[in-house]
Design a protein around this nucleic acid. Structure first.
Lengths: 240, 240
DNA sequence: GATATCCGGAGGAACTTCTTCCGTTTAGGT
DNA sequence: ACCTAAACGGAAGAAGTTCCTCCGGATATC
């Protein structure tokens, strides 16, 4: 996943080892998000489809694994933010796009999770962290500047709402539904609850009743009730 | 906390026992919310300020405790919903008020949490559950009816957003700040992100920078940057 | 086809959590 | 003020998890 900037002199990993490493990283991100940073490492290994020994071989201990997950998250977040700002002329559009993209990374909630587990201020993490924060701040500044985002909505608001939206909902909800709900709820936040806004399009994602919700753990989620697109249900399409 | 409908023939609990029971219930709710339903019962007891034996004396096992927490949650939710609907003429106002009140109960996220741990369909829980759901649905219907809530915003949307907002944010955030942020983020959802809405008042709660956020685990949260009220910082004041 | 690199899973050590038991404390009536 | 049934707390053995290393076997790469 990460294009690891392999230091010179150290021979690169064998192909299978590299593959396992990135699978472990992805699995760790998901497991830590779902069950907290104290989750059993055996579950991480299992979900990555590798043996526990491989996890210990790639990442010496829980700390290193956490650090790697965070580093990965920061790098991707920064790239995502920069791309959004570069490609969307309107500040609000850039912000919206950034937020949806970050949800797909399933990454924003990792940083607060590890806050009392690892040191974010060391020389490896600090620069990436600063750069990432700056990239996000640029988007927010842009949205403030062209008046499309109220001044009292700040960095922390955006970041924390992303944390709330990124965390998988508790209970036996299938991951795919969870992802679609996250995007729908982001739409809800972005478009607001009140009606009568300038020609509001219907929000994306499944419009579910309590009944639907109850059945969602067994059956596949209902097709979008309010809109027609995304028949394949890839789960990555959404408004805007 | 609950006015337990003491069955006849069974002598009522002694005063200290009753107090401990409700403290345990509150502690259990918080601990399960923070660390999941698998959290050590010893921590529940510690937070309730009682010995572990007392927990086992009041609630035979983890299951019973979970059931009691859920029951408590449902009863309070229902009451809150009914009060909101009765006292607010406007549908949207009722909904908003209900949502803020539920956040204060710190209760909505418990139901999904226990979904695969206990049976919600038995004869004790089912009626309360149905009644509670109906009360909420009434509010939503009212808001739909007088056009203050878009039709495609459903029961599940409201419920799940409350779950997201009720769960304490991960990381070392003091509980009091967590509560204020939850209300602020609800305001964000309710009022939306876009500016220029009909004379929007500033949203409540701390308007924080990344810096503020970082320091929030050690220092007390900053006084509201955007508004002046709530100098005592009781944490229960918010917009609307 | 040789070999350095990597893999998986078993298994003992260490730790966490559960749950009961019993001597001590306290509420509430007289 | 005193008595007693009711309730309490914490210690401690049992049971269950999780950690982490070691080694025989598999596989990528030259």
């Amino acid at each position: 996943m990460t294009q690891s900037p392999h230091a010179e002199g150290v021979r690169p990993l064998r192909a299978d080892a590299r593959r396992n490493q990135s699978q472990l990283l992805a699995a760790a991100r998901d497991v830590f998000l779902e069950r907290g940073v104290g989750a059993p490492l055996e579950e991480v290994a299992r979900r990555a489809g590798v043996g526990i020994a491989t996890l210990y071989r790639r990442f010496g201990d829980r700390q290193s694994l956490l650090r790697a997950v965070v580093l990965d998250a920061l790098v991707h977040t920064k790239a995502t933010a920069e791309r959004a700002l570069a490609e969307e002329p309107d500040g609000f559009d850039a912000l919206t796009r950034y937020m949806h993209a970050v949800l797909d990374l399933r990454v924003s909630a990792v940083i607060p999770l590890v806050l009392d587990e690892i040191d974010l201020d060391d020389e490896e993490l600090l620069p990436v962290r600063t750069a990432s924060a700056r990239a996000i701040q640029l988007i927010i500044d842009a949205a403030h500047a062209d008046g499309t985002l109220p001044d009292d909505v700040t960095f922390a608001d955006i970041g924390l709402m992303l944390v709330r939206l990124s965390r998988p909902l508790p209970g036996p909800i299938p991951p795919e539904l969870n992802a679609r709900l996250a995007h729908r709820h982001l739409d809800l936040l972005v478009e607001g609850l009140r009606p009568g806004r300038h020609s509001r399009e219907p929000i994306g994602g499944p419009s579910m009743s309590l009944q639907d919700l109850r059945e969602s753990s067994s059956r596949p989620p209902p097709t979008d009730a309010s809109s027609s697109e995304d028949p394949a249900g890839t789960g990555t399409r959404h408004r805007r």
